[in-house]
Design a protein around this nucleic acid. Structure first.
Length: 112
DNA sequence: TTAGTGACAGGCA
DNA sequence: CTGCCTGCCACTA
């Protein structure tokens, strides 16, 4: 397994409940700015083994990207259960995107 | 070794 | 806003 893959898995495991990340941002933090498609591969092949919160990964448009109709609804439901507002299959990235600056914001404002 | 495969991203019409 | 197109890259057969 490449370092990129290891890092990507670790990063996704850090995403807190109620927050989401995009394929592209995970790839960037993992050191491969253009490796977004690898993230989808990781999610579809090793979510169980590494306990990755797969439902917190969405595309750059803020939409649930999974193709399977049933899977889409499952992801939507799981996100809503942890407090993410999902309109149709879209999420407001300005509110729910998680990144390092968001972490600093949460700490400074005592927000969970 | 090579061609095919994505739960993508970003630019453009 | 909605497609369409191209670049991408780790993995697989």
């Amino acid at each position: 397994m490449k370092e990129f893959t290891r890092k990507a898995i670790w990063i996704m495991q850090q995403i807190p409940e109620g927050k989401v990340m995009t394929y592209g941002s995970v790839a960037r933090y993992a050191g491969s700015p253009r490796g977004a498609r690898q993230i989808s591969w990781i999610l579809s092949s090793m979510t169980e083994k590494y306990h990755i919160p797969w439902q917190r990964i969405i595309n750059s448009k803020g939409e649930i990207a999974i193709q399977d109709e049933q899977g889409k609804w499952m992801q939507k439901t799981m996100l809503e259960e942890e407090g993410v507002v999902v309109i149709g299959f879209r999420i407001d990235l300005d509110v729910f995107l998680w990144d390092t600056t968001q972490v600093a914001y949460d700490i400074n404002n005592n927000v969970q």
